[in-house]
Computed example of a mutant assay.
Amino acid sequence: MVSWQLATENDRDQLYITMIFRNPQIRTFRWFEINMPVVLIREERRKGTTAEQYIQKYVLDFRQRTKEGNVAKYGEKMIV
């Protein structure tokens, strides 16, 4: 049995996020060190920004700030 389904915007966003998280440049980063607002992901994906470009523009330079923001939002327990 075969089933076909068209990819939705959410499916495409999830694929883009997977490509970002699997990139060797940030593979050792924890989830709370990576900037992943859904609106930003969709916007950059639609513009044709590659995962590598996204990482350079939004992840590497903002790692510490993103971590601090997520610690403030979710608390220190997430780090353990």
Rank of each mutant, 00 (worst) to 15 (best):
R65Y: 12
V59Q: 02
R12K: 15
I41P: 07
R22M: 12
T50Y: 00
F29E: 01
A7H: 08
F29R: 05
L15P: 00
Q64C: 08
T50Q: 05
E68H: 13
K73M: 14
R27D: 10
F21C: 04
R46C: 07
A7T: 08
Q53I: 01
R27T: 11
F62E: 02
G48C: 12
R65H: 13
Y16R: 00
G69K: 02
L40T: 01
F32K: 00
V71S: 07
K47N: 06
Y16V: 00
P24M: 09
V80N: 14
M1T: 15
V2F: 08
F29S: 03
F29Y: 13
D61C: 07
R45S: 02
Y58P: 04
F29T: 00
V59F: 02
V38H: 06
Q53H: 07
E52T: 05
R65K: 15
E9R: 11
F32M: 03
Q25W: 03
A72C: 15
R30K: 15
E44Q: 08
W4Q: 11
D11V: 07
R65G: 11
M1D: 13
N23F: 04
E52P: 08
L6H: 08
R45L: 09
V71I: 15
Y58D: 00
N10V: 10
E9S: 14
K77I: 07
R27G: 00
E9Y: 06
L15E: 05
P37S: 06
R12G: 00
Q14C: 03
V39D: 14
R65N: 08
R46P: 05
F62G: 08
N10A: 07
M36L: 11
N23C: 09
V2Y: 12
A51L: 07
R30P: 02
G48I: 07
T49I: 07
F62N: 12
K73T: 11
S3F: 15
N23W: 00
P37W: 04
I20H: 01
Q5G: 10
I79M: 13
I34L: 05
E68M: 15
V38Q: 10
D61N: 08
V80C: 13
F32V: 03
K73R: 12
F21Y: 11
P37I: 10
D61Q: 12
R12E: 15
Q64L: 15
I55G: 01
S3A: 02
A7W: 06
K47R: 14
N70T: 04
N10F: 10
Y74G: 01
R65I: 14
R12P: 02
E52V: 05
T66I: 12
Q5K: 15
P24W: 03
I17F: 03
S3K: 10
V2E: 04
P37D: 06
M19K: 03
R22H: 10
V39N: 13
I34D: 01
Q53D: 04
Q14D: 03
I17G: 04
K67C: 03
D61T: 05
A7V: 10
R22D: 06
K57E: 06
T8M: 10
R30F: 06
Q64Y: 14
T8S: 14
K67Y: 14
E9N: 13
G69S: 11
I20V: 02
M36W: 00
P37C: 08
T18Q: 12
Q14V: 02
D11A: 14
E52N: 13
R45M: 14
T49D: 03
M36N: 01
